[in-house]
Computed example of a mutant assay.
Amino acid sequence: MRRGPALLAGLATGATLSLLGLVGCAEPPEVPSLEQVQAERSLTMTAAWVRAAAATEDYIERDWPEAEYPPLRFERWVDEQSAIPETLACMEGILERPAGTVSANGIVSLFPRPEDEPTWQLPVAQLRCQVALIPWTGLYPFGGPVEQEWVRHQLTVALPACARRWGAELVVADLDRAVDASIFPTSASRELAATQSVWLAAELRGADAVTEACIRAQCPDPGRMLAQLGPAEIRSIDVGPTGSGGVP
Rank of each mutant, 00 (worst) to 15 (best):
A53I: 06
L139T: 12
I107D: 15
Q148L: 07
V171F: 07
A213T: 14
L122E: 11
P185T: 08
A202Q: 05
E30P: 08
E149F: 00
V108Q: 02
T156A: 10
T16S: 13
C219Y: 05
A67D: 00
G240W: 03
Q36R: 12
P98K: 07
I237N: 08
A209C: 01
L110M: 15
P118G: 04
G100R: 14
V31Q: 00
L22K: 13
A12V: 03
W166F: 11
E68I: 14
Q36G: 14
Q148R: 11
A213Q: 13
E40I: 07
F184Q: 10
T16N: 09
V172L: 02
I215K: 05
P220D: 13
L139F: 14
A47P: 00
M1D: 11
A54E: 11
A15Q: 07
E149W: 04
D238M: 03
T16V: 11
L95F: 05
E80T: 11
D174Q: 08
A15P: 04
A213L: 10
T211G: 00
Q130N: 11
A163Q: 04
T211I: 05
S197G: 01
P65C: 06
A132Q: 02
E40P: 07
I94Y: 08
P185S: 07
D174S: 04
A12P: 01
V172W: 03
C90M: 06
G10S: 03
L34I: 10
T195F: 09
D58P: 01
Q126D: 12
V108A: 01
A178V: 13
M225H: 15
A232L: 01
W199N: 12
D208C: 00
E169W: 02
A67K: 03
P220E: 09
E115F: 09
R205W: 04
H153Q: 14
P220M: 10
A12R: 00
M91E: 14
L133F: 14
V179N: 08
P220C: 10
F74V: 05
E233W: 03
P123E: 12
Q130S: 13
T156M: 15
E40R: 06
R41E: 11
R3V: 13
V151T: 02
V157I: 15
L17P: 03
T13I: 07
S244Q: 10
E203L: 07
Q196F: 12
R41L: 06
L192Y: 10
E75Y: 14
F184V: 12
L7E: 08
A67Q: 01
Y69Q: 08
G138C: 01
S18P: 01
E117G: 06
D238T: 00
V50C: 12
Y69G: 04
D79S: 14
P222F: 14
R97K: 09
